[in-house]
Design a protein around this nucleic acid. Structure first.
Length: 740
DNA sequence: ATAGGGTTAG
């Protein structure tokens, strides 16, 4: 017996380092069972530790249960490690607890796993308690344990932020301690019985010690870091990462330099940790330096660095550079795809973003929650309601509809695509809403001209204690603007200071626009002149458009002069003023401006309208005959125009600037892009179907009148989204009440 | 034991 045992032990020791595969491990185990019986607890624990290193959870558990109680420390440690690396964090902690109950002393090898479980369960309190335990055992000088501790504090620092914590749904908080964490946590059936082990609660006495460590969040990370006697690259990467996550970019970069002084070279982890800083700061120079460093050190094929770089170039609006990088990546994972899609969408390349999204699906990369919140704004901008609905269906099937990012982007998409009812439904059914969700909904009401709903919702948002931000004020001002609510707008604008939100260009532009539209041109002029920040061409141009609407050419000249000084390259001003001169019959002045524009190489933004029919987007540019069905469309349009003229429609050509005869003017108006899109919509859908058209510029007065007639004569609801708002035409009138 | 991507904007 004893010789047999000795032999097998020798065999075991000879083989231990040679075991490279799971199969070999099982083979060895089988051989040991054949050779000796019974196998000692020590030997079984050794096999168990080999199994656990291969993450053979089931085999490890079987073996653990086969060992007579009390199991050796080694056996406990192996199970804890195996549970943690298999994703069963609660079970891992239960075993840790059980091990302590048995009087076993944990060592440096087990703490990293235990701390990882705390992170995954977001149990900061338990983590702190374990930190105390580490200190008591004198293990706080261990490199691995120290790194794991820092990681724990860095990842859970957000729990210290009451703003963040309060916004979390109840069931996700799970910070009230270990045992509360048991509620609602699922573990697989076959592992069920192993939960019985720990009957004794954790000794929270240790918590006191952990608390004595003092400060919150990132300070704790730094404290652990400073007390570590030995630090490696991982230690540095962890502190730097912690600093980045808490927005302390300068500290992060300072530590990057210090790391070099400590004679440690940044690795691929370091680089992809600091790259988001340069992305955020739009610092292309520093970003490129990192890129160069990555190439020189052979990190440029790394997927992590790749997507960080794509993102960095995208933030610096270098879309082509991002795309080049994306193409050069040796392999692409879900994040690389999402980064590239986000690059396109966030830089206005919606079609390319959608095409890449399709390619990603074809490449069998399943879309994640991220993917949908990235792609939805593309649908919102393009008004592709059908596509948006298909994606929404995918979201529901995948169970992503509870994600706050996804849900907010859906609210926005439906609102922008003209379906305010569904937007509202989604918004109200969200478990929690953050300021972005509220803003999306308020903005949705605003662009539909539902000012009262927008304001009520904004008031409700404040009553619920949701922090206002700069964007939500843009939304509220927009709402006021579309309804001509001057007094309310002033009230909101002035209240921004009480919220500690300084007005930005958008807010000034919003109020200037509002005053202008309401005909208070002088008030608007004085307002812009007294701005606390320097107005830009776009702020003044809001007033310039108002001058056109209210036909005040003197004020227009004054405003245009301001724009020519501040922003001489601002095309809109030349075109608008020239247009006004044309309408007033001052052809010479109009022509002079057009010549200036030509000399400066300025071109007017071409008017474009589009419509989604049978999942395909059809775009129309005024006067462009390239659509394959152009002749048919034109014929249909002629017919419609004849019909509405019989109903009393009289073309209004006063806004046409060209010095041409009446017949030509009529032609110019009648081929406006939105008419082509509407005519195409009517001829290619069944009677009664709602027509949804999007235009990149404002609808002109004549088209607005014509569409009102069309809606009545053809018995169609026609929803036009121009660059400012929605116009819902029905039975001869428009939802904007002719104020836009 | 460490890393990358997300929603709102006249």
């Amino acid at each position: 017996m004893s010789t047999c045992y000795q032999t097998s032990l020798r065999t075991f020791l000879e083989h231990e380092s040679g075991i490279k595969t799971k199969h070999q491990a099982k083979e060895l185990h089988a051989r040991i069972i054949r050779t000796i019986a019974p196998v000692s607890a020590i030997l079984n624990s050794k096999i168990l530790s080999i199994y656990s290193n291969f993450n053979l959870l089931r085999d490890s558990l079987t073996l653990f249960n086969a060992i007579d109680s009390p199991q050796p420390t080694k056996a406990w440690k192996s199970i804890i490690k195996c549970y943690a690396s298999s994703g069963f964090f609660l079970n891992s902690l239960t075993f840790f607890n059980g091990m302590r109950a048995e009087g076993r002393i944990p060592d440096r090898n087990v703490f990293p796993s235990v701390l990882k479980s705390c992170v995954q369960l977001r149990d900061l309190r338990l983590g702190e308690s374990i930190h105390g335990c580490v200190i008591t055992l004198g293990l706080d000088s261990d490199l691995y344990t120290g790194n794991a501790l820092m990681n724990m504090y860095a990842k859970l620092q957000f729990l210290k932020d009451p703003q963040v914590f309060d916004k979390m749904p109840e069931r996700k908080k799970q910070t009230s301690g270990f045992w509360n964490g048991l509620v609602g946590y699922n573990y697989p059936d076959e592992l069920d019985l192993n939960l019985r082990s720990g009957g004794v609660g954790l000794d929270y006495d240790m918590t006191e010690q952990a608390i004595k460590l003092g400060a919150l969040g990132m300070d704790t990370v730094s404290k652990v870091f400073e007390m570590m006697p030995i630090r490696d690259v991982v230690s540095w990467n962890t502190v730097i990462g912690g600093n980045v996550q808490s927005g302390r970019y300068m500290e992060a970069l300072g530590m990057l330099r210090e790391m070099g002084c400590a004679d440690l070279k940044p690795d691929s982890f370091t680089l992809s940790t600091v790259l988001p800083i340069f992305a955020k700061y739009v610092d292309i120079k520093k970003g490129k330096e990192v890129h160069g460093f990555a190439i020189r050190h052979g990190f440029d094929g790394d997927v992590f660095i790749g997507s960080s770089l794509i993102d960095m170039y995208a933030n610096c609006t270098r879309v082509d550079d991002s795309y080049k990088l994306f193409c050069l990546l040796p392999q692409r994972d879900a994040v690389s795809w999402n980064s590239m899609i986000a690059t396109c969408v966030q830089n206005g390349r919606f079609d390319e973003g959608l095409e890449l999204f399709r390619q990603m699906l074809r490449d069998n990369i399943g879309p994640a929650e991220y993917s949908f919140s990235i792609i939805m704004p593309a649908c919102a901008h393009l008004t592709t309601l059908n596509l948006g609905k298909q994606l929404h269906a995918y979201v529901i099937r995948a169970g992503y509809d509870e994600n706050i990012y996804v849900a907010s982007s859906l609210v926005d998409m439906y609102a922008k695509c003209g379906n305010i009812k569904i937007a509202r439904w989604i918004f109200h059914n969200m478990e929690i809403q953050d300021s972005v969700s509220w803003t999306a909904m308020i903005m949705g009401y605003a662009i539909h001209g539902l000012a009262r709903d927008a304001i009520l919702l904004f008031e409700k948002m404040q009553m619920e204690g949701v922090q206002s931000n700069s964007v939500v004020f843009v939304a509220v001002l927009t709402a006021c603007s579309h309804a001509g609510l001057v007094d309310e707008a002033w009230k909101f604008f002035n209240s921004m200071n009480n919220h500690g939100i300084p007005p930005e260009l958008e807010h000034y532009a919003g109020l200037a626009d509002l005053l202008g539209r309401a005909g208070r041109l002088q008030e608007a002029y004085d307002f812009i002149s007294s701005m606390h920040i320097k107005p830009t061409g776009s702020v003044w141009s809001a007033l310039l458009s108002a001058c056109r609407v209210h036909k005040n050419i003197e004020m227009a000249e004054k405003v245009a002069k301001e724009i020519f000084i501040i922003d001489p390259e601002y095309t809109g001003a030349y075109a608008l003023l020239s247009n006004m001169y044309g309408v007033a019959g001052r052809w010479k002045e109009a022509q002079k401006l057009r010549i200036t524009m030509k000399r400066k190489g300025m071109t007017k933004k071409p008017a474009c309208s589009w419509i989604e029919v049978k999942n395909k987007v059809h775009a129309f540019v005024a006067g462009d005959k390239s659509h394959p069905l152009y002749d048919q469309i034109n014929e249909a349009l002629e017919e419609i125009l004849e019909q509405i003229e019989r109903e009393g429609y009289v073309p209004d050509t006063s806004e046409v600037l060209h010095d041409v005869d009446e017949e030509q003017k009529r032609f110019a108006v009648s081929t406006h892009s939105e008419r082509l899109a509407i005519a195409f919509g009517i001829m290619s859908t069944t009677a009664g179907t709602t027509i949804r058209v999007t235009k990149n510029l404002r609808v002109c007065v004549d088209c607005h009148t014509a569409i009102k007639f069309i809606s009545k004569t053809m018995g169609r609801e026609i929803i036009v989204r121009d660059n400012i708002r929605f116009h819902c035409f029905k039975d001869g009138s428009c939802s904007c009440g002719d104020y836009w």
